[in-house]
């Protein structure tokens, strides 16, 4: 691995595009009625499910510039049945509780969950900390999509635009269920073979590490791979001792491919992934007022 680190391309830190939560009024409405009718004063965490939504790049008609919207996780109901991202919402009873609560420890609980994951389906988790002012239809919230990173070392390398032909071949190997998978080329007929990430040891038993290839469905549409790759890299590094891997970021268009390597051992880890408040650029709660679309009195007044 140290030899590959000499490679010029591998001297740069691979960056990851963040993902954020897009929370719909249907979600707030469901959360409010769950609070009022079911949960009441109990403020235990509630399981939620969200859905990845790919970012998209559009071209500015005036300047020709390409603008990327960033990837999202959509929350539009309390149901955990559909959607492919799991998480929890911690809904406090009072604004004081919300202010006072130890948010970092809630965050760390989720990080522990990710670290102890026994399957790749469990390594993308979302955390939502809220206070719902139900009378005013106002919601305060903090959101996080934690990523576990090594205390000091980074993943080095660079994913580049993948050729269409290879992208199509890789995408054809995606298993029916699963957002990430591993690929190798058969020695006998040159066809691509695939397996689930958890089959790593068996699948790559006789394969040189230079051929390890990890593929995942990437909701990002930016130049850099999406946030979800970070925990996936943590997972393969800690479970299978991987320090060097080819990565394929599968997208509707402009998929990425490249080699990443690291000196990270994850002996000591840190975690990042709080969503910033775009109004001040810091990690502070956001406030959303939905009285125009949820308040029955206002709706009645508008219905002329």
């Amino acid at each position: 691995m140290s030899s590959s680190a000499q490679n010029n391309k591998n001297n740069q830190i691979q960056q990851f595009s963040s993902i954020r939560l897009q929370i719909y009024k249907e979600f707030w409405n469901a959360l409010s009625s769950h609070k009022l009718n079911t949960q009441k004063l109990d403020d235990a965490a509630v399981a939620i499910g969200g859905e990845f939504e790919s970012g998209r790049a559009v071209q500015d008609r005036n300047t020709g510039e390409s603008i990327d919207s960033g990837a999202y996780i959509i929350l539009d109901s309390l149901s955990t049945e559909h959607g492919n991202v799991r998480g929890t919402v911690k809904n406090f009873n009072t604004i004081e509780d919300f202010k006072r609560c130890d948010k970092v420890s809630l965050f760390n609980d989720v990080v522990e969950h990710i670290k102890n994951a026994t399957s790749v389906d469990d390594i993308t988790r979302i955390l939502l900390i809220t206070y719902s002012d139900i009378k005013k239809f106002t919601f305060h919230y903090l959101a996080a999509t934690p990523a576990v990173i090594d205390g000091s070392a980074q993943w080095m390398g660079s994913l580049e635009r993948c050729e269409e032909e290879l992208a199509a071949e890789m995408q054809a190997t995606q298993p029916a269920h699963g957002w990430c998978w591993i690929v190798k080329r058969s020695e006998s007929d040159g066809q691509l073979l695939s397996a689930g990430v958890d089959d790593w040891k068996d699948f790559y038993r006789d394969t040189p590490s230079a051929h390890y290839t990890l593929a995942f469905v990437d909701p990002s549409s930016a130049q850099t791979p999406g946030w979800v790759l970070r925990n996936l890299l943590y997972y393969i590094a800690t479970r299978f001792g991987v320090r060097r891997v080819n990565v394929f970021a599968s997208r509707h268009s402009a998929s990425l491919f490249g080699e990443l390597s690291t000196d990270a051992t994850y002996a000591s880890t840190r975690s990042v992934g709080w969503e910033k408040n775009t109004e001040n650029g810091k990690i502070t709660p956001k406030t959303i007022n939905l009285s125009t679309s949820l308040d029955p009195t206002r709706l009645a007044n508008q219905a002329v």
């Binding site: 595009s17 990173i149 910033k276």
Partner: peptide, 13 residues
């Protein structure tokens, strides 16, 4: 977090 792409610091689109 040097590995966070620019978008996460500047906020969003």
């Amino acid at each position: 977090d040097p590995a966070a792409a620019e978008t996460s610091t500047s906020g969003v689109l």
